[in-house]
Design a protein around this nucleic acid. Structure first.
Lengths: 218, 218
DNA sequence: CAACAGTTTGGAACAACGTTCCAGACGTGT
DNA sequence: ACACGTCTGGAACGTTGTTCCAAACTGTTG
């Protein structure tokens, strides 16, 4: 039954692993069935015996990376929401294409891996039954939005240095019409110096504060 | 080969307008230089005289749609954040491809149209100088994340009815391993009945509550 | 051990894409 | 009327996801 056809037999796992490798090196658009076939020393047609199409392959790759990242946390931390959020943030920071996938595919299988621990923690916080869905949805949307933005930035980072890019955007903001964009001009200078990870966590705390207030207001 | 000269001149605006039309009808992947050329009764090569490439065209189309949507609000509402957020949400709901673009392109020009009014309102709320960047970033990330998710759902809506899709996902959640996914199973039933727009607004209020607490805590 | 049946393989082929190229048609200033 | 620079749009190039299928391979049977 489970005998190996060849020493380097093609399998779904090997294909997904190779896909992850290519995506990490060459980014979102770098994954090609021809390049993938080259890495696996085969032809493009062979891959379709183990994977339906590129979309499924991308979904599987995303799930694989996120699953591997999520096993790490394990312990029920008091600040599990923050811990999970940071794992997601760091994972997408290391694999920007994961962010692209999560925000492109509706109700992505890998999303459950994020939703579940966050949901448990929200329950543990004593949030009322009726407010749990809203709270978890808000946290999830924020995490995806912030991570996605970060992934978009990381996607063009090979071309430009991060601070170079941010300062150029900052200069662009500072030169906007003072009448139309006073606020944007006002915070332009804060753009290059800020820490993405820190800002991300501050946003999580903001939402958590809102959730706690939700409990007290009722 | 007698090539007929066109009577109506090609222009950047006409190209962008036609692109928006196609994107609205055929979705993200529906925009093609050949199809666009067909709509404009010309060849694909002619378009490149007014637009550098597809990426620029998509950016321009996104900016055009968002600019048109944003002029509507104008008046300084007390709940401007909520108003702006809803405009963005509804715009992306009507043009899902706008959501894709906003979360793909880093510091998208159209983003300023969202950032500015939200920033002003945050200032008006009396948020401390040091907390303004965090507050605006959090709101922006949430708006993009939630709208993006909504866009992803809308993208596959032509294939499936919304409630059909949600109930199928809900059933999938309900059948998960009780040991591993207790929370997901727990809220599975709330999935089909929820109102996306309402949930979105509730999330905005959650963050706004957090921001107000931020002021009181300091 | 030999013959068969069912997969797996991988290279060729197809349609469609973004983009480039350029001969010819156009419009304008002289 | 002429010339010159701009706009046009069809052809062509390289690349993509995907399909197809003869050949190679594996496991089972006679």
């Amino acid at each position: 039954m489970t005998t190996q056809r060849r020493t380097d037999a093609l399998s779904r796992e090997r294909i997904v692993a190779a896909a992850v490798e290519i995506l990490d090196v060459d980014g979102d658009d770098g994954l090609t069935f021809r390049r993938l076939a080259g890495h696996l020393r085969t032809g493009p047609g062979a891959i379709y015996n183990h994977v339906a199409n590129k979309s499924e392959l991308l979904t599987a790759a995303t799930d694989a990376v996120l699953a591997a990242a999520m096993t790490a946390d394990a312990a029920d931390d008091v600040d599990m929401v923050r811990a999970v959020a940071l794992v997601v943030f760091d994972t997408i920071d290391a694999h920007p294409w994961v962010g692209t996938q999560l925000s492109r595919v509706p109700s992505h299988p890998a999303m459950l891996r994020i939703l579940e621990p966050i949901g448990r923690q929200v329950q543990a916080l004593g949030v009322a039954e009726a407010d749990q869905f809203t709270s978890v949805s808000a946290l999830l949307a924020y995490i995806l939005g912030a991570s996605g933005q970060n992934a978009a930035n990381a996607r063009m980072l090979p071309d430009t240095d991060r601070t170079d890019f941010l300062t150029s955007v900052s200069v662009g903001w500072a030169n906007l019409d003072p009448g139309e964009y006073p606020f944007t001009r006002h915070i332009a200078q804060q753009l290059p110096g800020h820490d993405d990870r820190e800002q991300f966590l501050a946003g999580i705390d903001l939402i958590l504060a809102g959730i706690r207030m939700l409990g007290q207001a009722s």
